[in-house]
Design a binder for these strands. Structure first.
Lengths: 348, 348
DNA sequence: GGCGCTGTTGCATACGAATGCAAATGCTTT
DNA sequence: AAAGCATTTGCATTCGTATGCAACAGCGCC
């Protein structure tokens, strides 16, 4: 049977003090005599008392909980983010309530749960939010921070890496490496990250008088990216470079080229990704990519959330963090590298 | 400023009913007249009322929350588990509270948070628990289910895949493939999964009159596994097969062999892993491995937790689920496959 | 019309801890 | 010894919702 939990009242009885005294022993800045505290803690220990966080939340009106909404955990990039975020918030005495949501409809139902759960803040990792829901959160004074997504509403904060300049660097790097038939493999059609990377990339090509050879969509998914690769390479004259909107897809491209099409990377085709996930560094891939500053992004998101929670002021702030090009073998034919405005290339 | 939330009392006033009536509108099986419900819902809608889950939890003594303790999210195997578990519990109206914990000490502090949080159940993914903490959970009537770990205490439930027979299959498969110098790469020294896989593996070798050629420890970590590989292969006569206790390490072995030692897989060395993570199927690796039934394991864990929560009976149950050998190129020299008692090989 | 029945409703209380306020304690000071 | 002050303590109330109980309404039936 479920045991009835020990309450502060019972501890108070045993210690011969009032319930308030017990409560004060477990509040950081409460006024309590050392001797009393000792007595109370002994009694608490003896009974196995643990303060009930639910009751505390009710009266303090703060659950010390952050709701996290994620769309994909199979992408190691976001898994890493989640892990780091969890540790970060744990340090500040906050806990994460995890929600998975693939589509916007699911997000609506999930948001309803979140609002009922009294979370103190909401962190969205690559998940989108309808503006009506965003508005409701802001109206209730719950800060929302989105990582790597944008939303058409002002009240929510956004943290992203500099996708535009990352894409720009890739475009320039490929052109300067001597590539001539450069293709782009997009992520999800409606994702801001993919389109910003694409825009920077196209601008770089244009500045060098090169047009994008071909485009395809891979939905940030391995299998879809494989199919897209086959489509891109079925013509007699195929691309000599592919920029995939993330590493996951870039890996799929490399594997498909090697295994199905008998093409060598980078000898026949240069491939560049985005994110710098751990796999990218593996000897089999040696993927040239653009590193997103995971920890800095999470730190920024944490600071925004905790800051707004503390101040009670919910406002939409935007942070764009610099990215770092990582040059590896998959696209490094020519090493005449030059610096990009916002990005220092690093050879690893 | 943080807005004062709308309460059921305010809705009641607007709708011209009592607070109880409002409450009953949001409880599934409460007795309420359709006409009243309509009035109340309209008022709730107008005010933007959402029931406060904290207050509800306090009175019902059930938070509808499951605490999840994880040790590693960088292993896609556990990331997949978490994602599936989240969706599964979401379906049942439960939410996940996520905690990361690497070592046993951290787990102790995390458990303290969990007990205060009034979670209805605890799910441990590849994390260990001291028996004193386990005992406390059981004493409080909080069910605990561990996936892929064992604990020296009876009250907690355990779900695991059949590591022993998985290891056994690997041992036999390698011997029957003609390998003679077979090495084992262990995971964490104290993990039950690694030692069970090892035991099955060694038993299979012994039954065929073969001794294990060498052993090393890789801590389930890419870099450590790379170092271990170098150690295993530094002698003139090196292994002709390696069984790594999980895929993550097996991939590290393959990469290290190819990139640093100039050895071909499977031509020079056969490599087998465990888990069947998505990477294992990638064309570059084609890793022979033993698949753990992720969804079945989570389903089982979910059923155990929800069952014990519903009945109020906390008890230690053990479930061992069958594994499925997956034969791919990394270890398939000879295809004279035979069936293993608990495992049907599948060619994918 | 009175009786009993089913289905709704409101009242009052409970959940467990935090906190403003006033009372009480202990200590110093003159 | 009395007054003054700072610190500690207990009392009573509060957070927002669920629920047992009693009151009540509506209905059909004899």
């Amino acid at each position: 049977m479920r045991k009835r939990p020990v309450t502060s009242q019972e501890v108070a009885n045993l210690a011969g003090v009032s319930q308030s005294a017990v409560s004060r022993c477990f509040s950081p800045n409460a006024s309590i005599a050392p001797k009393t505290k000792e007595k109370v803690l002994a009694a608490a220990q003896q009974l196995g008392y643990r303060p009930n966080a639910i009751a505390r939340s009710l009266i303090t009106r703060s659950s010390r909980t952050i709701a996290v909404v994620m769309s994909q955990l199979d992408n190691p990039f976001y898994a890493q983010m989640l892990e780091y975020a969890s540790r970060r918030f744990q340090q500040h005495g906050y806990h994460l309530l995890l929600f998975m949501s693939s589509d916007e409809q699911e997000t609506a139902s999930v948001m309803s749960d979140i609002l009922q759960s009294q979370a103190d803040g909401i962190l969205m990792l690559a998940a989108t939010l309808s503006s009506s829901l965003a508005k409701e959160c802001v109206a209730r004074g719950i800060p929302v921070v989105m990582i790597n997504r944008t939303v058409a509403f002002e009240g929510v904060s956004q943290v992203a890496s500099d996708n535009y300049h990352g894409g720009y660097w890739v475009g320039r790097h490929l052109v300067e490496s001597g590539c001539e038939r450069i293709a782009f493999l997009a992520g999800l059609a409606d994702s801001s990250t993919s389109s910003q990377r694409r825009q920077g990339f196209l601008d770089a090509l244009a500045e060098h008088g090169v047009a994008c050879w071909a485009e395809a969509v891979g939905d940030y998914d391995f299998t879809t990216a494989q199919a897209a690769t086959r489509a891109l390479f079925k013509a007699d004259v195929y691309p000599d470079a592919v920029f995939a909107a993330n590493d996951h897809m870039a890996i799929a491209v490399i594997d498909t080229l090697k295994a199905e099409l008998g093409l060598q990377v980078p000898h026949d085709v240069a491939v560049v990704g985005f994110d710098n996930i751990p796999v990218a560094a593996w000897p089999s891939y040696q993927l040239t990519t653009v590193q997103q500053p995971i920890e800095a992004m999470v730190d920024e998101a944490t600071a925004l959330l905790l800051g707004q929670i503390a101040s009670g002021q919910v406002m939409g702030e935007r942070k764009v963090l610099p990215v770092t090009p990582i040059v590896r073998d998959s696209a490094a034919r020519d090493s005449s590298l030059t610096l990009c405005a916002h990005a220092q290339p690093v050879r690893k």
